[in-house]
């Protein structure tokens, strides 16, 4: 049975098992843990991180990294907020389009330096991490966006239940995030252009020989990642309402952590965005459950989280390695048997 599944599928199944175990564990520790409220709480807080982890995954697949993602989310949230504050009657589609376009613009800047000027992505995005944030500080003029100036439809949007089963609510922000992840997942597994991201990441030389334009592929990855970061900025604005110049600070490393826990290879070429989504959910679930666990003080949250990430990645690497060894041995013994039959 195990040998028929692809490593990626095994990984997703393993992540789901871990997710289940975490829920089971905390339900024995925290009274009234398993309830509709748990789902509602985690699903609405994970939406932003799920989008950012997906954005980060697109870039990591091509052997690059985007450290500027937190600054992009912060800038987009602020700019979108000031746009709607100045024009309260703006149609929502225009507002969303504005967020996404602005995010794409930042993605283009990163993509240009990485794909055209051939500067390593970690250097470019380390630079634009600081640059975009400083543009935001200049643009904000020491003001902040406040909830009171935002239209009510925007504030109500993230928590609007689209579907209700008992106390379980499928809220709009989570629905948006899951829809985006599914679309990206299907595109990455079915569409030729999107498959190029894997080709470029797993072996650039081979991809080039196969006629893939590497620069264009990397550029596209950054632009798409920017678009998703822009959408995340919109959700950030809707969820928090009050936006200051520090919005989204530190998201860059959190998004990498979620992607890595979700089994995305940091050296590119392998990983699923669904994995990144489950990674984000896992991190968020553990984070919010530890707060309610009375046995440890809430200050243990980060320490436990760091340890768990290390554990997850180590397990993943070791299991995948032994799986590869086991499969080679298995196929070798099959060939041996066949060879024995042929030569009596």
């Amino acid at each position: 049975m195990l040998h028929r599944l692809s490593p990626q599928t095994i990984r997703i199944l393993a992540l789901l098992v871990v997710l289940l175990l975490v829920i089971l564990f905390f339900s024995t520790q925290v009274p009234n843990y398993l309830s509709g409220r748990l789902f509602n709480r985690v699903s609405s807080s994970v939406a932003i991180m799920a989008l950012i982890a997906t954005a980060q995954t697109l870039v990591i697949l091509t052997r690059n990294i985007d450290l500027s993602i937190g600054s992009v989310v912060g800038f987009v949230a602020f700019a979108t907020g000031s746009l709607i504050t100045d024009n309260p009657d703006l149609h929502w589609t225009l507002l969303v389009a504005f967020s996404i376009t602005l995010g794409m613009f930042f993605g283009m800047i990163n993509g240009f330096f990485v794909a055209v000027a051939k500067v390593p992505a970690i250097i470019v995005t380390l630079g634009t991490l600081a640059l975009f944030r400083s543009v935001l500080v200049e643009f904000s003029d020491a003001k902040s966006i406040v909830t009171a100036n935002l239209p009510t439809w925007l504030i109500n949007f993230p928590n609007t239940p689209l579907l209700e089963i008992g106390t379980l609510q499928l809220r709009a922000s989570f629905a948006v995030a899951v829809a985006v992840v599914l679309v990206v997942h299907i595109a990455l597994s079915r569409i030729r252009i999107a498959r190029k991201l894997y080709a470029v990441g797993s072996n650039p030389e081979a991809a080039e020989m196969a006629g893939i334009n590497i620069g264009l592929t990397v550029f596209t990855a950054f632009v798409l990642s920017g678009a998703l970061a822009g959408l995340a900025g919109f959700l950030f604005l809707a969820r928090f309402g009050t936006i200051t110049v520090v919005a989204g600070l530190g998201f860059e490393l959190k998004s990498v952590a979620a992607a890595v826990v979700g089994g995305v290879n940091i050296f590119g070429g392998s990983g699923l965005v669904i994995g990144a989504l489950i990674g984000a959910i896992l991190v968020d679930l553990i984070d919010s459950s530890l707060v309610r666990w009375h046995l440890v003080s809430e200050f243990w949250r980060e320490a436990v989280l760091g340890g768990l990430i290390l554990l997850a990645v180590t397990m993943d690497t070791l299991v995948m390695r032994s799986l590869a060894v086991w499969r080679t041995a298995r196929s070798n013994s099959k060939e041996d048997r066949r060879a024995n039959v042929q030569s009596p």
Partner: peptide, 27 residues
Amino acid sequence: YAGLPSLVVTLATLIGFRGLARVLVED
């Protein structure tokens, strides 16, 4: 020795060491 990428390992300990610091002094 385990052969994991340092970017990932030290990202985890970035979170973990900071967590231990907060455990010690709380707020």
